[in-house]
Lab assay of single mutants.
Amino acid sequence: MASQGTKRSYEQMETDGERQNATEIRASVGKMIDGIGRFYIQMCTELKLSDYEGRLIQNSLTIERMVLSAFDERRNKYLEEHPSAGKDPKKTGGPIYKRVDRKWMRELVLYDKEEIRRIWRQANNGDDATAGLTHMMIWHSNLNDTTYQRTRALVRTGMDPRMCSLMQGSTLPRRSGAAGAAVKGVGTMVMELIRMIKRGINDRNFWRGENGRKTRSAYERMCNILKGKFQTAAQRAMMDQVRESRNPGNAEIEDLIFLARSALILRGSVAHKSCLPACVYGPAVASGYDFEKEGYSLVGIDPFKLLQNSQVYSLIRPNENPAHKSQLVWMACNSAAFEDLRVLSFIRGTKVSPRGKLSTRGVQIASNENMDAMESSTLELRSRYWAIRTRSGGNTNQQRASAGQISVQPAFSVQRNLPFDKPTIMAAFTGNTEGRTSDMRAEIIRMMEGAKPEEMSFQGRGVFELSDERAANPIVPSFDMSNEGSYFFGDNAEEYDN
Score class of each variant (00 low, 15 high):
residue 114 E to L: 02
residue 217 S to K: 04
residue 78 Y to L: 00
residue 228 G to W: 07
residue 452 K to Y: 12
residue 493 A to T: 15
residue 78 Y to H: 14
residue 255 D to T: 08
residue 473 N to Q: 15
residue 389 R to A: 14
residue 77 K to C: 13
residue 218 A to Y: 04
residue 224 N to A: 09
residue 157 T to G: 02
residue 36 I to T: 14
residue 205 N to I: 13
residue 428 A to M: 06
residue 336 A to G: 15
residue 215 T to L: 07
residue 245 S to H: 01
residue 321 N to R: 15
residue 127 D to G: 12
residue 340 D to M: 08
residue 422 K to I: 02
residue 125 N to L: 13
residue 152 R to S: 07
residue 321 N to L: 06
residue 305 K to Q: 14
residue 97 Y to W: 05
residue 410 P to A: 15
residue 491 D to A: 03
residue 12 Q to D: 01
residue 204 R to V: 08
residue 471 A to M: 01
residue 363 V to N: 04
residue 310 S to W: 02
residue 448 M to W: 04
residue 307 L to N: 01
residue 454 E to C: 15
residue 61 L to R: 02
residue 290 D to T: 07
residue 104 W to D: 11
residue 136 M to Q: 14
residue 353 S to Y: 02
residue 208 R to H: 04
residue 200 G to L: 08
residue 442 A to N: 14
residue 226 L to G: 10
residue 482 S to H: 03
residue 387 A to Y: 05
residue 256 L to C: 12
residue 118 R to V: 11
residue 431 G to N: 08
residue 416 R to Q: 12
residue 294 E to F: 04
residue 245 S to T: 09
residue 36 I to Q: 13
residue 289 Y to E: 01
residue 99 R to K: 15
residue 45 T to P: 12
residue 412 F to A: 05
residue 164 C to E: 00
residue 250 N to D: 07
residue 419 P to A: 12
residue 461 R to Y: 00
residue 39 F to N: 14
residue 14 E to C: 12
residue 226 L to C: 09
residue 458 F to D: 02
residue 194 I to Q: 12
residue 88 D to W: 01
residue 367 S to Y: 08
residue 393 G to K: 08
residue 303 P to C: 14
residue 436 R to I: 05
residue 208 R to Y: 06
residue 89 P to C: 15
residue 208 R to K: 15
residue 80 E to Q: 11
residue 439 D to W: 00
residue 49 L to Q: 09
residue 456 M to Y: 10
residue 377 S to L: 13
residue 451 A to Y: 01
residue 168 Q to S: 14
residue 115 E to W: 02
residue 21 N to I: 05
residue 370 N to Y: 06
residue 463 V to F: 00
residue 413 S to I: 05
residue 96 I to G: 02
residue 68 L to R: 05
residue 38 R to I: 06
residue 28 S to H: 09
residue 329 V to R: 06
residue 72 D to W: 14
residue 108 L to V: 11
residue 324 H to D: 12
residue 163 M to F: 09
residue 329 V to Y: 02
residue 83 P to C: 12
residue 172 L to H: 04
residue 46 E to Q: 09
residue 385 Y to S: 05
residue 464 F to L: 04
residue 10 Y to L: 14
residue 227 K to P: 05
residue 206 F to M: 08
residue 223 C to M: 13
residue 164 C to T: 04
residue 289 Y to Q: 10
residue 157 T to H: 02
residue 331 M to A: 10
